[in-house]
């Protein structure tokens, strides 16, 4: 597997070189996500300001050294609110991805491995979930569950069940047809054991890439629900809600909407960049 193989497979010689010098945008994206994650885990390390209490005398100050993102209508430091908001937004996105991943993969694996009427029925349910526009599906689930951070996250998760189910099913079908899985069955492996030992490891890359992609879109959708007022109740710092609260000052305090929005866009863009890198690496 040395010189002759390299000639036959020109791609295999390109890969290590690419791995040694990853794209600058990817490094940047990982850095942005790392910072956002650090904000979510230990927000107090990044700001000494209180995200909930402000001084009224200090209200609506434009960005300055003391308040890099300025202050809002009640004098709260906006950067502190963005930093403390990371926990709500990112954990919400994580819950959403988890719901979609677990339920969707369960449906897809069940459909792909049972076949017949059960598969037909499961995949028609998936069709129904796909037929309802994502935001409307999320809103229906919110009407069912009630408002709140966790409920909004679950609602967003429900919208991604269908794509995870389709991916999982196609992966199961693909791997099931391969020779080594037939061999595993032939040598007496039980269905669950073969699933665990062979199907799962072989599908992990594609599922992870989708999960990363869904993480970015979940942040967006959760912030949309927060903006519409169905997520975290005020004064909780949540990215979508921050932008909604500052809407009344659009003419006088532009930084209140611009800066939190840029943070959301940067995090989502980074998540998508990492997702495409994961997809390429596992393809």
């Amino acid at each position: 597997m040395s010189a002759s193989a390299a000639v036959l497979l020109p791609r295999s010689t390109e890969r290590p070189a690419a791995r040694r010098r990853p794209a600058l945008t990817l490094v940047l994206a990982i850095a942005v996500l790392a910072v956002a994650l650090a904000w979510a885990i230990a927000p107090w390390l990044f700001t000494s300001q209180d995200p909930l209490a402000g001084e009224a005398l200090n209200a609506l100050q434009p960005p300055s050294g003391a308040h890099p993102f300025g202050t809002d209508a009640t004098g709260r430091d906006l950067l502190a609110r963005v930093i403390f908001g990371a926990a709500n937004s990112l954990s919400g996105a994580a819950i959403a991805v988890l719901v979609g991943l677990v339920v969707g993969t369960a449906i897809g694996v069940l459909a792909g491995s049972t076949g017949g009427v059960a598969e037909e029925a499961l995949m028609r349910i998936v069709d129904v979930l796909l037929a309802i526009p994502g935001l409307l599906l999320a809103l229906s689930v919110i009407v069912l569950l009630g408002f709140g951070v966790t409920n909004a996250a679950i609602a967003v998760g429900v919208t991604s069940i269908a794509v995870f189910a389709r991916l999982a099913r196609s992966q199961v079908l693909r791997v099931r047809r391969s020779d080594y899985v037939e061999a595993a069955f032939g040598s007496g492996g039980s269905f669950l054991r073969v699933l665990w030992r062979h199907v799962l490891p072989n599908s992990l890359g594609a599922v992870l890439a989708l999960a990363a992609l869904q993480f970015g879109s979940a942040i967006l959708q959760i912030s949309t629900l927060g903006f519409l007022g169905y997520g975290a109740p005020p004064p909780t710092p949540e990215w979508g809600l921050l932008i909604a609260e500052s809407r009344d000052y659009v003419g006088s305090a532009a930084w209140l909407t611009t800066l939190p929005g840029l943070v959301v866009a940067a995090v989502v863009l980074s998540a998508n960049r990492v997702a495409s890198a994961v997809r390429k690496a596992t393809a």
Partner: peptide, 23 residues
């Protein structure tokens, strides 16, 4: 396109309002 996908739509609306109407 990847940039467009990553921008919150509600935020984009507010920013457009800010720039074209107020500024």
């Amino acid at each position: 396109p990847p940039l467009f996908v990553s921008v919150p739509v509600f935020w984009l609306g507010i920013v457009l309002l800010q720039v074209f109407s107020f500024q």
